[in-house]
Write a protein that binds this DNA or RNA. Structure first.
Length: 257
DNA sequence: ATGGTGGCCTTGCCA
């Protein structure tokens, strides 16, 4: 099964590029973040034409997550099933695709350390762990994909000194990310590539992509049963080039199962 | 290639 995560930064603005890329790479399952579309505006017909069923959890101007699948979509759930209040934002959707429980997640940005939105981010990461604990076992085939807005280690940013005091690298965020891994998930890309300088996001500003000023904040997290079957895994940096790119590149993995 | 925000029902906010 070939699976992808991609923060497209507006599916409306990105649709031609996304459709073209999906035709070329032909993944079975696709996790999209930042659709920035209302529920009814989701272009499901265009994806159907490429052979995908789809589920979307949208809210309009901001956020919005989706899963596309050529191998079935069963038991879709929007948000968290942890007994808590509904998340005000459309940031996570779950579905079972080809026997694998898949999540497409867009973790809050946090804005600034100490900001109200930063507290929301830490709480959101804790709820993700809580959802996993309450609904799944680490013995199951579970994949959590998405934009976590956290760089887990200093090697995941282009210059740690430039991020002093910033979100994405603070210890509470890194601890919350590690808590999710500690539930029973592995960072499949990092398993394969231990070196620095490999990123999934480059800010639009200041020519960051061309200067290689990136961050690795998008992940394909897998339980052991799947992580041990991970084959090809790569960031398609070519998708960050050219006309009207997203500020994130897609992360793609093949699981032999 | 020899440079260099972009998306949002926009006039500032968010990332």
């Amino acid at each position: 099964m070939r699976i992808v995560t991609w923060n497209v930064n507006s599916l409306k603005a990105r649709l031609p590029r996304v459709l073209d890329w999906l035709e070329t790479m032909a993944p079975e399952v696709v996790c999209i973040q930042e659709t920035k579309l209302a529920e009814e505006a989701f272009p499901s017909d265009e994806f159907t034409d490429l052979g995908y069923e789809s589920v979307h959890h949208g809210q309009g101007q901001w956020n919005g997550v989706a899963i596309l699948s050529k191998v079935g979509i069963e038991d879709p759930v929007s948000g968290f099933s942890d007994g808590g209040d509904p998340d005000p934002d459309a940031r996570i959707i779950w579905a079972t695709c080809g026997g694998v429980r898949v999540a497409s997640a867009y973790i809050p940005n946090g804005r600034e350390v100490g900001h109200e939105h930063y507290a929301y981010k830490l709480g959101w990461l804790a709820r993700l762990r809580s959802h996993l604990e309450k609904n799944h076992s680490r013995k199951e085939d579970v994949l959590v994909l998405g934009d976590f807005n956290v760089a887990p280690e200093d090697i995941d940013v282009w210059d740690p000194k430039a991020f002093k005091g910033a979100t994405h690298v603070s210890q509470p965020e890194r601890d919350a990310f590690q808590d999710i891994l500690d539930w029973g998930l592995q960072d499949t890309f990092r398993n394969r590539y231990p070196e620095e300088g490999l990123y999934t996001f480059w800010d639009y500003r200041q020519g960051s992509f061309y200067k290689r000023y990136g961050m690795r904040i998008d992940f394909i997290l897998a339980t052991e049963s799947l992580a041990s079957q991970c084959g090809l895994i790569l960031v398609d940096r070519n998708a960050r080039k050219g006309e009207k790119p997203s500020d994130h590149a897609p992360l793609l993995a093949d699981f032999y199962r």
